[in-house]
Design a protein around this nucleic acid. Structure first.
Length: 585
RNA sequence: GACUCCGUAGCUUAACUGAAUAGAGCACCUGACUACGGAUCAGGAGGUUGGGGGUUUGAAUCCCUCCGGGGUCACCA
């Protein structure tokens, strides 16, 4: 937390008698920068002191506030508004940003704590569709956000590599399969077989029973079934990993559903020993009605375990292995009930850490005319979306900046950025309609807008560096990721603080780490995405109104530092969302 | 049917979890490169926050109800 904020909270707490956390949550950022950098609404105090909030604010404003951080405090109606000292912002905070560079915004709040993030989890043998985009992108951003707060993060890809769909695939492959085509395009081809299976099963329902029987054989370790399964699994995994590499995503563990096969029995036994299990129509169920939840099935009458049993086994295993302080499941909102049952069962099984497990739900991606369906072949491959986005970025580069170097990597950064950001920008709980036009939009509230701002920042710094060495200001001439450490010459002390556009920028930069904390607190990367948009907007206004390179020396120095700071925050912020920031585009 | 989520400008949406004049983007209209990149910027128009009640000093936000849409509800994950 910024020392200004800390000081304001502490002093408000002692003045009002409210506990610090309470002050902290009610401390807000005023809607208009002319109202100051922080605001404290006095409404809650009205009842306590039996006085009008306006009066309370006015009285509190009389207090002796000024300090190294705080310049003045004013009451505006029922609000107590804090104006932070410009000299602090420009002469302490800004140098700190420039000094810390790539690690600016990184805090130690999660130090010593471990958080497990379960995300992406595609089904092997099913295509990686845009439907999987959300979990993948949100999970990745959360991993990076938690890491930036000092948490040890374990990203787990709980692969859907077990289940009756493998019975279907084996049946389809044995009947219509072609080994060569499988090797050429594994996931595509398996998907083709999967769709064909369902088509044929319409007219030949016996196929379904055959599939169940093959899955049973697989579970019993039948050699042919096992070999096919392993083959399918290995090929699919390779394909997925190619995609993850392309997206710049990596996992700490690829333990999938099949890896818990040998722990299912003991999990069921544990539940049984707690008196949670009873038999019903040949199956094993857990009765959760006393807790207002529907009964759930742990084992089918044919002996096969279900999803929830696997999740229980996996959770227990993960706690043994990582002894996490928190575990997040980045899984669609349609599974909310499942997670309620799952967490309740963990609790009833006696695991005190059940309360540290959180479902991070998100809305469905659907078409205008209904939801996507793998079975019916109504899906859009994520790979196709990414490819088209990158191609489009490439076309725009050819049109606007044909002399650009490294067009391919820039096109990739911009195209992928647009898709990723497009998913992260909105509240994750909302359903989204799949729309080519929207997903390929590069103007307005998009990653390319932020990336473009960043590229212009870099352009200014590059020109400035060409004219004079500004490396002493925390930026080396190559614009590499380096930060100059303590040996840099001290920055010039600013005594004048410039235009409103400059104010907006420095204040926005001051709030960076607060936005990260907020995004982590609510597991909502969208907060950070919005913030970056706001900062980029602020920069663009500044850019059009405040010349940097041609300004007088004092102003030029100040603005150069400001711009260098913006570069760091935009770049770090995008990185936290899993998006690259090219220097030119 | 029960439970649950969502409903804000023509479209996509924000609002720091109950507070300052509901803020953006797209599309539309008008302007801006003899200053650092026009993937940009300035301005205009566009709102009974689905309807109706209630709680509160204060409601887009909480409660009730109705309408519309999504999701889930024992042998899928």
């Amino acid at each position: 937390m910024l020392p200004v904020r800390k000081e304001i909270i502490a002093r408000l707490a002692s003045l009002t008698g409210l506990p610090e956390p309470e002050v902290e949550t009610s401390l807000e950022i005023p809607p208009d920068p002319t109202l100051g950098e922080y605001a404290f609404p006095c409404f809650p105090l009205a009842r306590r002191f039996k006085k009008a909030p306006q009066l309370i604010a006015a009285e509190m404003a009389e207090h002796d506030w000024p300090s190294d951080y705080v310049e003045r405090v004013e009451s505006v109606g029922p609000y107590l508004n804090f104006h932070v000292r410009r000299s602090y912002l420009y002469n302490t905070l800004l140098p700190q940003i420039l000094r810390e560079g790539p690690v600016y915004g990184i805090l130690a709040e999660g130090k010593g704590k471990t958080v497990v993030v379960d995300y992406s989890a595609p089904n092997i043998a099913k295509p990686f569709s845009v439907g999987h985009l959300r979990s993948t992108v949100i999970g990745n951003a959360l991993c990076r956000l938690y890491r930036s707060l000092g948490y040890k993060v374990v990203g787990i890809n709980h692969l859907g590599d077990w289940g009756t769909q493998f019975g279907k695939l084996i049946v389809a492959y044995r009947q219509w399969g072609d080994a060569n085509r499988l090797l050429e395009e594994p996931v595509q081809y398996l998907y083709h077989l999967y769709v064909r299976f369902h088509q044929e099963a319409e007219s030949t329902p016996e196929l379904e029973e055959e599939a169940r029987s093959w899955f049973r054989r697989l579970e019993q370790g039948d050699r042919e079934a096992r070999e096919l399964w392993e083959h399918f699994r290995a090929l699919s995994l390779e394909d997925f990993q190619r995609l993850y590499r392309y997206l710049g995503i990596s996992f700490d563990s690829y333990m999938g559903e099949s890896d818990y096969n040998d722990r299912l029995e003991e999990t069921i036994e544990l539940a049984r020993s707690r008196g949670l299990v009873k038999e019903s129509e040949g199956a094993l169920v857990a009765d959760l009605e006393p807790y207002g939840l529907p009964t759930c099935l742990l084992r089918k009458k044919d002996g096969a375990a279900l999803y929830i049993t696997r999740d229980l086994a996996a959770a227990i295993y993960r706690h043994e292995t990582y002894s996490f302080d928190q575990m997040l499941y980045v899984v669609g909102a349609e599974q909310t009930l499942h997670f309620q049952q799952f967490f309740k069962l963990l609790e009833l099984m006696g695991f005190s850490w059940a309360g540290n497990c959180t479902h991070v739900p998100f809305g469905l991606i659907h078409f205008k005319d209904g939801r996507m369906s793998t079975r019916q072949g109504k899906v859009i491959f994520l790979e196709e979306v990414l490819k088209r986005a990158v191609e489009l970025a490439r076309e725009i580069i050819e049109e606007k900046n044909p002399s650009l170097n490294e067009k391919d990597s820039v096109a990739r950064a911009v195209g992928l950025g647009a898709v990723i950001f497009g998913d992260l920008i909105n509240d994750r709980i909302k359903d989204v309609e799949f729309d080519w036009e929207k997903i390929l939009d590069f103007a307005g509230e998009t990653a390319p807008y932020i990336q473009y701002s960043h590229a212009r920042v870099c352009s200014i710094l590059r020109r400035a560096a060409a004219e004079e060495m500004i490396s002493a200001n925390g930026m080396d001439t190559e614009l590499k990721e380096t930060t100059t450490s303590g040996d840099a010459a001290p920055l010039k002390v600013h005594n004048s603080f410039g235009e409103p556009e400059e104010e907006t920028l420095i204040i926005a930069m001051a709030h960076f780490s607060e936005e990260i904390v907020r995004a982590v607190r609510d597991n909502r990367p969208s907060y950070l995405a919005r913030y970056l948009l706001e900062l980029a907007r602020g920069f663009n206004k500044f850019y059009h109104n405040c010349p940097v390179l041609t300004a007088s020396e004092e102003i030029r120095q100040r603005r150069l530092q400001l711009v260098a700071g913006v570069r760091i925050v935009l770049r770090n912020g995008l990185a936290l969302l899993g998006i690259e920031a090219p220097q030119e585009m």
